[in-house]
């Protein structure tokens, strides 16, 4: 099997870097401390009340998964947003683009090396996460589902980072834009829904007061579909199903009011994961297009009528001079 050259080189360089070891140390230390604290408090409660609350172990699962998710949301953009722009800054991108390697291979090599780092983090957290198996409540299928969710969210946030990295020459600007987009997706779409829900509630309250009757439940309306692109909501839906109330729809109704009854809301998790995967593919394709220096079959850049007219006037002036 032929390895992607960029992926192989990234693995070599990353394995020699202190950064990877430092990230692993910090990440696993946080999880280990949290797990130990959780078990200590459970045992402490047993000593006092002689009863074990099994829900506390599920809390541990939720906590570890949430930390993993947050790390994923924050580390992936940092890793990918400096990937292509970093190559530009080191002046190595041009060297790679003069080889017979395709721009697609460069982007995919970079993305997969970042995903591998995330995989390494997830695998290193498995022993701590597996503590829940001692007491039960979470199945292997649940873990696999969470893994898929994390993988797709990593591809999506990584795609955002790759896109900005290919667009901007400076890694700093690319990183800022990637984080801004992720904050906009996570907090922005949530804020829009909460705002729409509150507005609808106020409107209904005044209407109901006037009529003194019940008409319908308040909701955020069509804005709810924006949340399909919110990785945090997708993760919350997965965790709610596995370790929460188990009813995603009910949880959403608590947060954003009445939900429309259709195929999208009924299959929220698969639909949102599919959409995010699709968005990741589009972003990666855009990144490939951006770094391609000469597009096949393109002979000269396209000029609009205005550009042509300006060039004609400029040439005429030059001739007159």
């Amino acid at each position: 099997m032929k390895w992607n050259p960029v992926y192989r080189r990234e693995l070599t360089v990353n394995s020699r870097s202190v950064r990877l070891a430092a990230i692993l140390l910090v990440f696993d230390s946080i999880l280990a401390v949290a797990a130990l604290f959780n078990m200590y408090s459970v045992v402490g409660q047993v000593k006092v009340t002689a009863e074990i609350q099994y829900s506390r172990f599920l809390e541990l699962y939720t906590f570890v998964s949430s930390i993993e998710f947050i790390m994923l949301m924050f580390i992936m953009p940092a890793l990918t947003a400096s990937s292509v722009s970093g190559e530009r800054e080191k002046q190595t991108l041009e060297l790679m683009l003069t080889t017979t390697m395709k721009p697609r291979e460069i982007i995919l090599g970079k993305l997969f090396s970042a995903l591998t780092m995330m995989l390494l983090l997830a695998v290193s957290a498995l022993p701590i996460q597996s503590l829940v198996f001692v007491y039960g409540g979470i199945t292997i299928t649940d873990m696999a589902m969470l893994f898929v969710c994390h993988g797709i969210v990593a591809a999506f946030t990584g795609g955002i980072g790759m896109f900005y990295s290919s667009l901007f020459k400076r890694s700093t600007i690319a990183t800022v834009c990637a984080y801004a987009t992720i904050v906009l997706l996570a907090a922005g779409t949530y804020a829009v829904n909460v705002f729409a829900y509150r507005m609808d509630m106020n409107e209904l309250n005044s209407y109901l007061n006037a009529l003194n009757a019940s008409v319908r439940q308040p909701s955020s309306g069509g804005f709810i579909y924006l949340l399909l692109l919110n990785p945090a909501i997708t993760f919350l839906a997965v965790i709610t199903r596995q370790a929460g109330s188990g009813n995603v729809r009910l949880a959403f109704e608590q947060w954003f009011g009445a939900q429309p009854d259709n195929a999208v809301t009924a299959n929220w998790i698969p639909v949102s994961l599919l959409l995010q995967l699709l968005a990741a593919v589009v972003l990666i394709a855009a990144a490939v297009h951006t770094i391609t220096p000469v597009h096949q079959g393109k002979k000269g850049s396209k000029k609009t009528g205005v550009k042509r007219l300006r060039e004609y006037i400029r040439n005429e002036r030059r001739r007159a001079c």
Partner: peptide
Amino acid sequence: AGLLSPDSGS
């Protein structure tokens, strides 16, 4: 070297 696209020419 194929790193830049010209406006016109061959």
